[in-house]
């Protein structure tokens, strides 16, 4: 057995130098064996290459911000004002809002995606209306209600589920109902804008299947095996 003259600890035969201070083992009475038993082999797993998502998000932001800045600069330089470049800026900002959650999180879910989409979509649509034909007034009667309806329906389902007013398999059923209502709302708003009257036309073909699918979903959920599969993926 060899001891480190510096640390006073005994060293295993596998240690050619003291792991604590680096002092070499020199023991004429007991030379280091050629193939001592190694507590850990020399083999190793490959080094992990980790993806830095925040770095990618930063690069993505720069990649969008750079053309935006160039367009704004060119537009202002040649025309003395911001005109066409605002479309580019608005569109790129909207794209960033849509895609950023995907880069900043490992797996995107509904709510963190929905809110940036709603707000950025509203902003971009208003910008388009403002820049093209403010007199046409399609943003307030059509675009804004549609986007808000979507947001409200999504939020309603979420709040109902969070407050346990609906639970279990009522939640996916509620989502299907909300999808049907969204189609009906779209239909109503378009008819109101074009014909100035409240009337459901094509949306019946969406609303009724949605309601039927919600009912079918609840029926399927009565099956033990399917219920277990769904429960384990959605348990709270």
């Amino acid at each position: 057995m060899s001891y480190c003259v510096n640390c006073g600890v005994e060293l295993a035969p596998s240690e050619k130098q003291c792991p604590l201070c680096g002092t070499e083992v020199i023991n004429p009475a007991q030379p280091v064996p050629e193939n001592p038993w190694q507590p850990y082999p020399h083999r190793d797993d490959p080094v992990i290459a980790q993806i830095n998502r925040r770095f990618i998000a930063a690069m993505f932001t720069i990649a969008l911000a750079f053309p935006m800045a160039i367009c704004l600069a060119i537009d202002y330089t040649y025309s003395g004002q911001f005109s066409w470049s605002l479309y580019v800026a608005g569109a790129l900002t909207m794209i960033w809002c849509w895609l950023a959650p995907g880069f900043l999180s490992k797996k995107t879910r509904f709510l963190p995606v929905m809110l940036p989409i709603s707000c950025s979509l509203l902003g971009f649509l208003y910008l388009v209306e403002y820049l093209t034909a403010p007199a046409a007034r399609w943003f307030v009667p059509l675009a804004m209600p549609l986007v808000l309806l979507l947001t409200v329906l999504a939020s309603t389902v979420t709040i109902l589920a969070r407050r346990a007013i609906i639970r279990g398999f009522a939640i996916p059923a509620a989502i299907l109902v909300a999808a049907g209502l969204m189609a009906a709302g779209t239909d109503l708003l378009i008819t109101l804008l074009r014909e100035e009257r409240w009337l459901l036309t094509w949306s019946w073909f969406v609303l009724l299947p949605s309601l039927a699918a919600a009912a079918i979903f609840l029926l399927i959920a009565r099956r033990q095996k399917v219920r277990t599969e769904i429960l384990k993926r959605l348990h709270i």
């Binding site: 480190c4 640390c7 006073g8 600890v9 005994e10 060293l11 295993a12 596998s14 240690e15 050619k16 130098q17 003291c18 792991p19 604590l20 201070c21 190694q38 507590p39 850990y40």
Partner: peptide
């Protein structure tokens, strides 16, 4: 390895014989 060195040296000073092995070799 400052911490490891001082930790085991302290035990040796307290009178505990220590035998060292590692994955460094």
């Amino acid at each position: 390895t400052d911490f490891e060195r001082e930790f085991f040296r302290h035990l040796v000073r307290l009178g505990v014989p220590v035998r060292i092995a590692s994955n460094l070799n």
